[in-house]
Write a protein that binds this DNA or RNA. Structure first.
Lengths: 233, 233
DNA sequence: TCCCCAAGTGTAAAAAATACACTAAGTTTG
DNA sequence: CAAACTTAGTGTATTTTTTACACTTGGGGA
């Protein structure tokens, strides 16, 4: 779709909370923009106004790709944010003016959530963002607008999904160990889990199968490699 | 707020799915409008465009009160709907023209959910709606726009809340029997529950306390009346 | 006084959750 | 090549939760 045909809706945006898993820590995809006065920077979740001809889901996917180059991931809507003061701060306005025609418009945003393997997605800055990068959740800076609030609600939702075993395995490599799954769960949930009990539960769900291969090159007893039962999900 | 001061946002609406419980069946609050050609009627969920100066939550409460006279209930946001074709049907447009300045505008709607005691809320038609009424869920007619879809998703969400015991008791009278609670759950979930197991579970949650009163005037063994433990919720 | 009707109650079995400690199999180091 | 290191891998006992199931009770109405 060319710009000429785009019918940008000034009142509705989408924001994407993309969590990235690197086998160690939980990260979030952020963008950085220079402020108008050049000596300060602003961090934000990737997001933008929607186009009238697309669905909200399509908008989320398009915006994420345009801003970060990331596409083809499963983005799930989790909540709309519509406080009339959510875009009110002077610093936000200053920034907004640089790229929106009508920076004072009331904007409600529909927030989306995703979880991906970090190393499969190398974000690339677009003209829109000065920089796109993975930020560790533990040292999250202050974000534009109400984006810290949106992020916190996204994290609650993500954990809820993990507790109910509705997600997670798709983040693992083709072949993985039970230790990998456990570490994933521990990182997302932010707490340690009992090894034996965790294994019992995972194996009972029958979503993974052991292969006849083992890890190599590790400096300890090599673990059996497992693979996803795609048909069972 | 007078009309003159209202800054109506043409792109964002709220819709309210208000479930009503009458101790027998689950109902939904609907509005009826005459079509332009007067010989057909249209049913819909109560909803309308938001005003720029209010939050989404405030908009949902205002709109519900304006259209149906119902106020002071807990409305919970559950999802935004934004398919560009959601308001496309000829019959919908015909109707929309009668009260919106710009009936062709792309509208995304944020849907809210509530559950109330029917007999505490006598809906009253406003100028906006020809009629406001409780419709039994079992015989739901075809609704305007994508309102049947919105309703179905609301029901899924409501049941999910009940399964996890996050809601429900507030629908009961000041004094109620364990049988009342069970019936409420059975109606919402649409299935029968085992009496003894249900009682065990409810009592273990310690959200209700027995009083020293009993039912009177019933033609069977009178049940012990219970009351809510407000501090425990 | 007998009937009707929902209230009220207990137990056994199965399933799920939790707590807990040692041996095994590789790699590296001395 | 032996010792040290590191994570893999395993079983059991206990508690908690879930499920299935049938009879007696107390009041009102006939």
């Amino acid at each position: 779709m060319t710009d000429a045909l785009k019918n940008i809706n000034p009142n509705v945006s989408v924001d994407c909370v993309v969590f990235g898993f690197d086998n160690e820590k939980l990260n979030v995809l952020l963008i950085e923009q220079k402020m108008a006065n050049k000596d300060k920077v602003q961090f934000a979740l990737p997001g933008d106004l929607i186009v009238d001809e697309e669905s909200l889901d399509d908008a989320a996917n398009r915006v994420l790709e345009e801003i970060t180059g990331i596409s083809g991931i499963f983005l799930r809507q989790f909540k709309a944010f519509g406080d009339p003061n959510r875009v009110s701060d002077i610093k936000d306005l200053d920034w907004l003016k640089s790229y929106r025609r009508n920076p004072q418009a009331r904007v409600i945003t529909v927030a989306y959530l995703a979880l991906v393997k970090m190393d499969e997605f190398q974000p690339e800055a677009s003209s829109f963002a000065e920089r796109v990068f993975w930020q560790e959740l533990e040292s999250m800076p202050s974000l534009a607008f109400d984006h810290n609030k949106i992020l916190n609600e996204a994290l609650d939702r993500l954990r809820d999904d993990f507790v109910n075993h509705r997600t997670g395995f798709e983040l693992l490599p083709e072949l993985f160990t039970l230790g990998h799954i456990q570490k994933l769960y521990e990182i997302i949930l932010g707490k340690e889990l009992d090894k034996r009990n965790f294994r019992k539960k995972i194996l009972k769900e029958k979503l993974v199968s052991a292969t006849n291969q083992k890890q190599t090159g590790v400096l300890h007893k090599p673990a059996i490699l497992y693979t996803l039962n795609h048909d069972n999900i």
